[in-house]
Computed example of a mutant assay.
Amino acid sequence: MSSRVEQIRERIQGALEPLHLEITDDSASHAGHAGATSGGGHFYATIVSAAFDGKSPVQRHRMVYSALDDMMHNEIHALSMKALTPSEHQTTGNS
Rank of each mutant, 00 (worst) to 15 (best):
S2A: 08
S3R: 14
S3E: 15
V5E: 10
E6I: 13
E6Q: 13
E6M: 11
Q7L: 14
I8V: 11
R9K: 09
R9W: 00
R9N: 02
E10R: 13
E10Q: 15
E10N: 13
Q13N: 11
Q13K: 13
Q13I: 12
G14W: 15
G14H: 14
A15I: 05
A15W: 01
A15R: 05
E17N: 15
P18A: 07
E22N: 04
E22Q: 08
I23M: 03
T24I: 14
T24L: 15
D26I: 10
D26V: 11
A28W: 09
S29C: 10
H30T: 04
G32R: 11
H33K: 08
A34T: 09
A36R: 07
S38F: 04
A45H: 02
I47S: 00
V48Q: 00
A51R: 14
F52T: 02
G54L: 06
K55E: 12
K55A: 12
K55H: 13
S56I: 11
S56E: 05
S56M: 13
P57W: 04
V58P: 01
V58K: 07
R60W: 05
R60H: 04
R60K: 11
H61Y: 09
H61W: 08
R62W: 07
M63Q: 05
V64D: 01
V64P: 00
S66F: 02
S66M: 03
L68D: 03
M71L: 15
H73F: 13
N74Q: 11
E75D: 15
I76V: 15
H77I: 09
A78V: 09
L79P: 05
M81F: 00
M81V: 00
K82A: 05
K82G: 00
A83C: 07
A83K: 02
A83I: 03
L84Q: 03
L84N: 01
L84T: 02
P86T: 09
P86L: 13
S87H: 04
S87R: 04
E88W: 07
E88R: 07
H89E: 04
T91F: 04
T92S: 06
N94P: 00
S95G: 01
S95P: 01
